[in-house]
Amino acid sequence: MITFYTYAQSGNCHKVRLFLNLLGLPYETRELNLAQGEHKTEEMLALNPFGQVPVLSDGDKTFSDSQAILVYLARRYGAEHWLPLDPEGLAKVVRWLAATAGEVQFGPAAARVAVIFRGEAPSDEVRNRSTRLLQAMSRTLALGEWLVGDEPTIADIAVFPYLSVAHHGLIDLTPFPRVRDWLARVAALPGFVPMPELTPAFAERLATVHASLSLKAA
């Protein structure tokens, strides 16, 4: 049995949840309260010395880091298209996996953290990083429906969560129709599950920051 240690509001955790569901795999969920430090207990540090989620246990094997977990699940349970075997396809998937720890993390993900966790507008640098990411995605998606190749890969799954809730960080996708169409294609995959709704506290912060920016623009 697969055990999935997670935090519902994390996009990095959600990409694993999404892929588990797309693969139709049964799993047990262990929701951790990060505010109470449940990811830093001795039990969790034994599973992941970095004290982070997500963590996935499959029998006697344990994996941490969302990208690493996606690779394991794709190779262990998925069809070949999720993680291509050919050198070119594999290299292109890895490039987008790297982007999730770079451009995505310091762009849309950072914008979301600023708004819903800290209650402040994202910085110009974060907005600019987000724009550059969206421009790069648009150029890539001009060549095909998916980030790599003719079928969905774990590159799409890895990038999807924080882009699907870009509005949480006040990042506007309106100028990027190819990205919006790509989001819709991912959402149409059999077994798809969306990011969970914001908690009331997070939703209140989003509304407050949005109202503050609207007043400044008026």
Rank of each mutant, 00 (worst) to 15 (best):
Phe4Pro: 05
Tyr5Phe: 14
Ala8His: 11
Asn12Tyr: 02
Cys13Lys: 01
His14Trp: 11
His14Thr: 11
Lys15Trp: 00
Val16Ile: 12
Arg17Gln: 11
Leu18Met: 14
Phe19Met: 00
Leu20Gly: 01
Asn21Arg: 13
Asn21Tyr: 10
Asn21Cys: 14
Leu25Thr: 03
Tyr27Val: 07
Thr29Ala: 10
Leu32Gln: 11
Leu34Phe: 09
Gly37Val: 10
Gly37Asn: 14
Glu38Gln: 15
His39Ala: 13
His39Met: 10
Lys40Phe: 15
Lys40Tyr: 12
Glu43Arg: 08
Glu43Ile: 00
Met44Pro: 05
Leu45His: 03
Leu45Phe: 06
Ala46Phe: 03
Ala46Lys: 09
Leu47Tyr: 02
Leu47Gln: 05
Leu47His: 04
Gly51Thr: 13
Gly51Ser: 14
Pro54Gln: 08
Leu56Trp: 00
Ser57Leu: 08
Asp58Arg: 04
Gly59Cys: 07
Asp60Met: 14
Lys61Gln: 13
Thr62Met: 05
Phe63Pro: 04
Ser66Phe: 00
Ser66Pro: 01
Gln67Thr: 14
Ala68Ser: 15
Leu70Cys: 06
Leu70Phe: 02
Tyr72Cys: 01
Tyr72Thr: 00
Leu73Ile: 00
Leu73Trp: 02
Ala74Glu: 03
Arg75Thr: 13
Arg75Gly: 06
Arg76Asp: 13
Gly78Glu: 01
Ala79Val: 12
Glu80Pro: 00
Pro84Ile: 00
Gly89Ser: 06
Ala91Pro: 02
Val93Arg: 02
Val93Ala: 01
Val94Tyr: 05
Leu97Val: 08
Leu97Cys: 10
Ala99Leu: 08
Ala101His: 13
Gly102Gln: 14
Gln105Gly: 04
Ala110Met: 13
Ala110Gln: 13
Ala111Met: 09
Arg112Ser: 15
Val115Cys: 09
Ile116Cys: 07
Ile116Val: 15
Phe117Lys: 12
Phe117Arg: 14
Arg118Leu: 10
Gly119Gln: 06
Glu120Ala: 11
Ser123Asn: 07
Glu125Val: 13
Asn128Met: 10
Asn128Phe: 09
Arg129Val: 06
Thr131Met: 09
Thr131Gly: 06
Thr131Ser: 11
Leu133Gln: 03
Met137Asp: 09
Arg139Gly: 11
Arg139Phe: 12
Thr140Arg: 09
Gly144Ala: 12
Glu145Cys: 02
Trp146Met: 09
Leu147Gln: 03
Leu147Arg: 04
Val148Lys: 06
Val148Cys: 10
Gly149Thr: 06
Glu151Trp: 00
Thr153Ser: 15
Thr153His: 06
Ile154Trp: 00
Leu163Cys: 05
Leu163Val: 08
Leu163Asn: 01
Ser164Ala: 15
Ser164Lys: 05
Ser164Tyr: 05
Ala166Val: 07
Ala166Ile: 06
His168Glu: 15
Gly169Thr: 11
Leu170Ser: 08
Asp172Arg: 08
Asp172Phe: 02
Leu173Cys: 01
Pro175Asp: 07
Pro177Met: 12
Pro177Phe: 10
Leu183Met: 07
Leu183Arg: 04
Leu183Val: 03
Val186Gly: 02
Val186Gln: 04
Ala188Cys: 10
Gly191Asn: 06
Gly191Ile: 01
Val193Asp: 08
Glu197Thr: 10
Leu198Tyr: 03
Thr199Lys: 14
Pro200Leu: 07
Ala201Ile: 09
Ala201Thr: 12
Ala207Ser: 07
Ala207Pro: 01
Ala207Cys: 04
Thr208Arg: 15
Thr208Lys: 15
His210Arg: 12
Ser212Arg: 09
Leu213Gln: 15
Leu215Phe: 12
Lys216Met: 13
